[in-house]
Write a protein that binds this DNA or RNA. Structure first.
Lengths: 170, 170
DNA sequence: TGTTGATTGACAGTATACTGACGGTCTAGG
DNA sequence: CCTAGACCGTCAGTATACTGTCAATCAACA
């Protein structure tokens, strides 16, 4: 069987490509998030970091990067900015001089409570154009795909890593 | 009817949020693209720009940004890098001194032909973990969603803008 | 115990992205 | 014809991301 003839090289092929659609959808998602949350001066990434620190108080930067699938290099500056806004604090760990433990400040916990409704509005708006059944279908497929492709990215998600820092305390 | 009680604030809510999944999927898509195309020293964005210029020779930067839904500010440096690699050239338009027209060079056309198979492998790999029927379903939903949310991003896609630069020549 | 190897946070360098602004240029209305 | 507004490319500033490297530190094994 002869293989299919090479498709003509045009921009239309790009419009239908998964990679293009993922990039485009991410642009849109960030734009909607920023619009709904513009009163709070928090980016999506900073929000995720705050939530993760709230869920795992005393986590260190490397484990945090695994828990939200961030690049460790990038996370450094994210943490700096959150610290500059007085939403988190870093304390050196007594038993390991390399590590700095992350905790929310009172301001951080407060901003988190306040921003939640805006974030939920944003998340809802991203899917709003679809019919409810389609929203579920899309989310289901995406969860699968992200999970099955986890190892393909530089920073695979390792949600269970967050528990390690508690391991010794137990 | 009382509204649902506020969900506890944890990182698990983030894992299921559309915005998080889109960001994660984009990370994965870029990683796969770069891996398949590492022999070519082209990023996904640069590839899309090359394809668009190939499809619309003599397009200017502003219209190019509309055609691939890029930010105009960002596009400047992308064009510079493509020019530095000798894949495109910029020529001032005779009838409008503001505009610089973009064309592929021979190297640019050549690299485009060569990279296509790698790009197609990358696009296929992104969806590979899903069953074929699910791939179709996901792409269908994504195309819809991106289209319906087009105006939500700073740079909506305006594919038809590309035709304008031909309008006067006709 | 002493050194190798791994880990942690930090940094430099490159590439997208978005906001906002600016001078040069064109165009349409008065 | 001439000026107000639109448009073009560009730039400065901020924020993600990834690659690769480094010194300090820790852990584990010989």
């Amino acid at each position: 069987m002869p293989s299919k003839p090479a498709a003509p090289i045009t921009i239309d092929a790009v419009y239908a490509a998964p990679g293009y659609l993922f990039r485009r959808m991410q642009q849109i998602a960030v734009a909607i998030f920023m619009e709904e949350c513009k009163a709070f001066d928090l980016t999506p990434v900073q929000y995720a970091a705050l939530i993760a620190i709230h869920t795992h108080p005393g986590i260190d930067a490397t484990r945090l990067s695994a828990v939200i699938a961030f690049d460790r290099s990038t996370l450094g500056s994210v943490i700096e900015r959150l610290q500059a806004k007085d939403y988190i604090e870093r304390k050196p760990a007594p038993e390991d001089k390399r590590i700095k433990l992350l905790h929310l400040t009172k301001s951080g916990a407060a901003i988190l409570r306040e921003i939640i409704p805006a974030v939920e509005r944003a998340q809802a708006r991203m899917l709003e154009p679809l019919k409810p059944a389609d929203r579920k279908a899309l989310m289901g497929l995406l969860v699968q795909l992200v999970d099955l492709n986890n190892e393909a990215s530089r920073v695979p998600l390792r949600a269970e890593d967050a528990l390690e820092h508690l391991g010794k305390a137990k």
